[in-house]
């Protein structure tokens, strides 16, 4: 299966303009940092998920981030507030590069995806540099991804077990070495675990149609024993309730971890992502009325 990213995003219409601009400033800061990390093409790897990581890490830092007014390629004539490069943006950019690269290698080996093969070189150099800086993390991610591939090849039918490996990768991403406090680390690990678990399961649900058509691995199909001739819609109907429950419970735990962090800023934006953004993305994916669902955030919360 492939990991579509971009699930972790704010619910824009509930943000104040001021808050939205702050979010943009971090997003643009990360984009610029990615561009500086080796080549401009790295910016293609930019996703909301890593923006959330950067946002959270900056929020935990006592030191105020520095802002600059800058323009960019996408918007060359208007200057906007951008968070200046700092260690959190660097870390998030490095993790984004490493992770994107490992995913591409995985996709290539798994599915012989030509797109993956062609995109790999973009990330090769920054990853080579990042690898030295994050030797342990790089190996940790690689091993877990390999384990996940093996588990999928063995047709594992326990949803929790497959989700666990992906969740553990996220614990690594959410705990940069420079965070020294044991308490903070523990909470971030827990938060990362639940976020990873949620992404993995939601992604499995979103991919049901594609995976059924192509006979790809999907833990939901195996755990809930899809019956031949059952049809996608009735299968979805059958599993929606337990899947929604486990996803919501996972989010509630993620929120529990989040509430134990000491934030110095961005609380409104982070609250928005955790209590509204994630929930709505999930609802939209579960209702699945919109195909890929990327535009679905426009439809505001009718339940």
């Amino acid at each position: 299966m492939s990991f579509l990213f971009g699930y972790v995003r704010p619910c824009k219409e509930e943000l104040k303009v001021k808050e939205y601009n702050m979010f943009r400033a971090v997003y643009c800061g990360l984009c610029k940092t990615l561009g500086q990390s080796a080549n401009q093409l790295c910016r293609l790897g930019l996703s909301y998920d890593f923006t959330f990581l950067a946002l959270l890490l900056i929020a935990l830092d006592e030191e105020e981030p520095r802002l600059a007014q800058e323009s960019c390629l996408a918007n060359p004539f208007r200057k906007k507030a951008v968070v200046k490069r700092n260690r959190h943006l660097e870390y998030a950019a490095d993790m984004s590069n490493i992770f994107t690269y490992l995913k591409l290698v995985d996709d290539w080996q798994d599915e012989h995806s030509i797109r993956a093969l062609l995109t790999m070189p973009v990330f090769y150099l920054p990853v080579k540099a990042g690898r030295r800086r994050y030797e342990d993390k790089y190996n940790f991610f690689r091993e877990l991804l390999q384990e996940l591939t093996a588990l999928e090849a063995s047709q594992n039918n326990l949803l929790d077990k497959s989700a666990d490996l992906f969740a553990r990768i996220m614990t690594g991403i959410f705990t940069p070495d420079y965070i020294e406090g044991e308490r903070e680390k523990r909470v971030l690990r827990f938060l990362g675990y639940n976020l990873g678990r949620w992404i993995y399961i939601l992604d499995a649900y979103s991919d049901l149609e594609e995976d059924l058509d192509n006979s790809n691995y999907n833990p939901l199909i195996l755990q809930y024993e899809y019956r031949k001739g059952e049809g996608l819609e009735s299968f979805k109907k059958r599993i929606q309730e337990p899947v929604e429950f486990t996803l919501t419970y996972t989010l509630s735990n993620l929120a529990k971890g989040y509430e134990l962090l000491e934030l110095h800023r961005y609380k409104e934006i982070l609250d928005n992502i955790i209590y509204m953004g994630l929930y709505r993305v999930m609802r939209n994916k579960l209702e699945g009325s919109d195909g890929k669902g990327e535009r679905s955030l426009q439809n505001t919360g009718t339940e």
């Binding site: 326990l158 949803l159 929790d160 077990k161 969740a167 639940n194 337990p242 486990t246 419970y249 735990n253």
Partner: peptide, 9 residues
């Protein structure tokens, strides 16, 4: 406790 909520439930 381990985060395997589905099996737990």
């Amino acid at each position: 406790r381990r985060g395997w909520y589905d099996q737990g439930y």
